[in-house]
Design a protein around this nucleic acid. Structure first.
Length: 407
RNA sequence: GUGGGUGUAGCUCAGGUGGUUAGAGCACCAGAUUGUGGCUCUGGGGGUCGCCGGUUCGAGUCCGGUCAUCCACCCCA
């Protein structure tokens, strides 16, 4: 039995790899326009980093981490998400003490040991941004606008959902009230009975009709925000309004990771099946402190690259480059020499099999190359080549040395 | 972790009720009067029928197991 890639892990090769790189370069460019600098952090980190930041209770840490003990006896894990590592680096580089605003973008593989399905893999890739040190809700808005810019630049349709998760001042008491409410309810579905203990906020998201019936009476987070949080959430909406960004306030939008506070948002697509989130993000003002840094407000998002790649097509590639071939064995040396020179500046496909002109043209056409440069008997004798523009259907002859100089 | 669907050529798939050398389309390679591409035509290469076991004179086809994959739940990017 041949060795295959592990379950939920895929190879990336053309033509998909081309799409992948196109996405990355455009997203990176936009992030740079917004003042973000590229950061790379290790794929493997101490397990503790993720259990602390993502949260013990989350599925990601509870059962989805690729975790092992390395040869030095350290408990390490493949990163299940990108934020924790960036925050760790931010603190380790003492940027929290330096003050000011620091903005980073990153991309790379993430790992979660889950059952694969459409849009969900064990190794997947994210493009993310993180902004540190800016408390203003205008930063939240800027980040949402950056995500919008990226998504729209590929012509992708989406729905933006936003919510506020409040701050410790309002979330703590709210959670308390919700737990009290839940503790006296009868007839919750098994899932909700479990969530009631592990992650009470999540019950509001339950798809069971009977549960939703019950939750109609439950205390609402948005009605329990403190004045500050309520004001900021209102302001965020006003900013999005002025920027012409349509959104839905979704009180059930609860980001899955424990570290979120304040505004939360998600871009979802209707064309992806069950895993429909393409961008997820929000504010996490407590995380830096939680991981041992100076208290620093922060906000960011992550884009699921595999998911977003499903939602757009690249325009067809235009014809370009040179095909170099020969009709007789003696032509191979000059053909190789010519190809080598062309390749310094342009795409040059050298066909090393001697074949008929017809076959060469077929090959050049199939490879979507613009010019066929052929060395036949006459050309070999005269030190020239025969060139055909496959697009304009024009053909001519040129001295060997002039081909390159006229590129 | 739970449920359902699917595993036959590189890809998409045909192969009633078991029965000779397992097929098609696409892709690939070669050719269609001598040095002219996309269309068309002809030919060619390529298959442990996922794997293991069972039933049977005989299994791609029936049964069991196993693995893989897809979709959904859960959760999330």
């Amino acid at each position: 039995m041949a060795i295959k890639a592990l379950r939920g892990m895929r190879d990336l090769l053309p033509p998909l790899s081309e799409k992948y790189r196109t996405f990355l370069s455009r997203a990176s460019q936009l992030a740079e326009n917004y003042g973000f600098g590229y950061i790379e952090t290790p794929i493997v980190e101490e397990s503790l980093l993720f259990t602390r930041s993502v949260g013990e209770s989350s599925d990601i840490v509870g059962k989805e981490m690729y975790e092992f003990v390395d040869k030095g006896g350290h408990r390490v894990a493949l990163r299940p998400e990108g934020t924790a590592g960036v925050v760790r680096a931010f603190i380790e580089q003492k940027l929290d003490r330096q003050g000011g605003v620091h903005r980073f973008f990153y991309h790379g593989p993430m790992f979660r040991y889950e059952r694969p399905q459409r849009g969900r893999f064990r190794e997947f890739h994210q493009f993310g941004v993180e902004s540190f040190g800016e408390k203003s809700v205008y930063e939240d808005a800027s980040i949402i606008l950056l995500a919008r810019e990226i998504v729209e630049s590929f012509g992708i349709g989406y729905t933006l959902k936003i919510n506020s998760l409040g701050c410790p001042r309002c979330m703590g008491p709210y959670r308390q009230r919700l737990v009290e409410f839940l503790s006296v309810q009868e007839g919750l579905c098994p899932d909700c009975q479990r969530r009631r203990l592990t992650n009470p906020i999540r019950v509001l998201d339950c798809k069971e009709e009977s549960c939703q019936e019950i939750y109609r009476e439950a205390p609402k987070l948005l009605e329990n925000l403190c004045d500050q949080c309520a004001k900021e959430f209102r302001e965020l909406q006003e900013i999005l309004d002025t920027e012409g960004l349509r959104y839905e306030v979704d009180p059930h939008l609860v980001r899955g990771l424990d570290y979120y506070t304040g505004s939360a948002f998600e871009f979802v697509s209707g064309d992806l099946g069950a895993q429909n989130a393409i961008v997820g993000g929000g504010r996490y003002d407590n995380l830096v402190e939680l991981l041992g840094g100076r208290p620093t407000p922060a906000v960011g998002f992550a884009i699921g690259i595999e998911r977003i790649l499903e939602l757009f097509e690249l325009p067809p590639r235009e014809r370009r480059g040179y095909y170099i071939g020969t009709l007789l064995p003696e032509g191979l040396r000059p053909a190789l020499h010519l190809a080598t020179q062309i390749r310094r500046r342009e795409v040059g496909h050298l066909e090393v099999k001697v074949k008929s002109l017809r076959a060469h043209l077929k090959g050049a056409d199939k490879l979507n190359l613009r010019y066929a440069v052929i060395i036949g008997e006459d050309e070999l004798r005269k030190g020239s080549v025969w060139i055909k523009d496959l697009e304009k259907k024009e053909e001519w002859r040129a001295p060997l040395e002039k081909v390159v100089s006229e590129l």
